[in-house]
């Protein structure tokens, strides 16, 4: 039996009088691949932000890998975020750093040795198909390549949970398919992948557990047999 990685329990998030999420509950196992889907404004991004501890729920509790996020102190945030990978919709690459420096940043933060950083960065760049592009700067890369750098940076620290917010939103269909295949490969290595998207075509092409949100509530939770 797979161990529990994420437990979202009766979570509500309210911005003044508007409910972004309302009484949302679900579990994710270690190594599980899941889509969070729904139309724009359904609460997908809010849910990911809560899972990444960028915000705190108004009610309910969230446990990620035995961390209770609602009681997490600000001083504990860096350590928590080093264990969770997040791929942002706008990539959030540092423009003044090249591909290698961007990808090695999470390892730098952990204080890893130069040799180990080099080994891991080379490995992950070849995984995302960017071997040989180490010295390029983000503004010299296409949208798909920037997305891959963001993925490489998110997985280089070997996180137990990988969160991705609309990771294929800016990509053409071929790049989107490649990246989804990559996510499934990452999940097969034991990382829990939670991906927010509204791209139904891709979801049908790479079927996985799908949690659908509507108006901040879970509309359906389809688990693949």
């Amino acid at each position: 039996m797979a161990s529990l990685m994420v437990r979202v329990s009766h979570v509500t998030k309210r911005y003044s009088k508007r409910f972004a999420l309302q009484d949302v509950s679900f579990d994710l196992d270690a190594g599980e691949f899941a889509y969070i889907t729904g139309v724009s404004g359904a609460g997908k991004s809010t849910l990911l932000k809560l899972l990444f501890a960028m915000e705190k729920p108004t009610e309910g509790s969230i446990h990620v890998n035995r961390n209770e996020l609602t009681t997490l102190r600000n001083s504990d945030l860096p350590e928590y975020r080093q264990k969770v990978g997040f791929i942002f919709q706008d990539f959030k690459l540092l423009p003044d750093l090249n591909v290698r420096e961007n990808v090695s940043l999470p390892l730098d933060m952990k204080g890893m040795s130069k040799k180990e950083i080099q080994r891991r960065v080379e490995g992950v760049l070849s995984l995302v198909g960017l071997a040989g592009r180490e010295k390029d700067y983000p503004n010299h890369l296409s949208g798909g390549e920037q997305q891959r750098v963001a993925i490489a940076r998110a997985v280089v620290g070997q996180p137990s949970l990988l969160l991705a917010d609309e990771p294929t939103g800016n990509l053409d269909s071929q790049n989107a398919r490649d990246i989804l295949a990559l996510f499934q490969e990452i999940a097969s290595m034991g990382t829990t992948v939670c991906l927010a998207t509204h791209d139904e075509f891709l979801m049908s092409e790479y079927p996985a557990r799908t949690i659908e949100l509507r108006n901040g509530q879970i509309e359906s939770d389809l688990v693949l047999e």
Binding site: F86, K92, P106, M109, R153, G157
Partner: peptide, 15 residues
């Protein structure tokens, strides 16, 4: 923006 990204990636206050 760079500093915020570093914080989001798990950069400590010291880093």
């Amino acid at each position: 923006r760079d500093l915020e990204i570093m914080q989001l990636l798990g950069g400590s206050r010291k880093f």
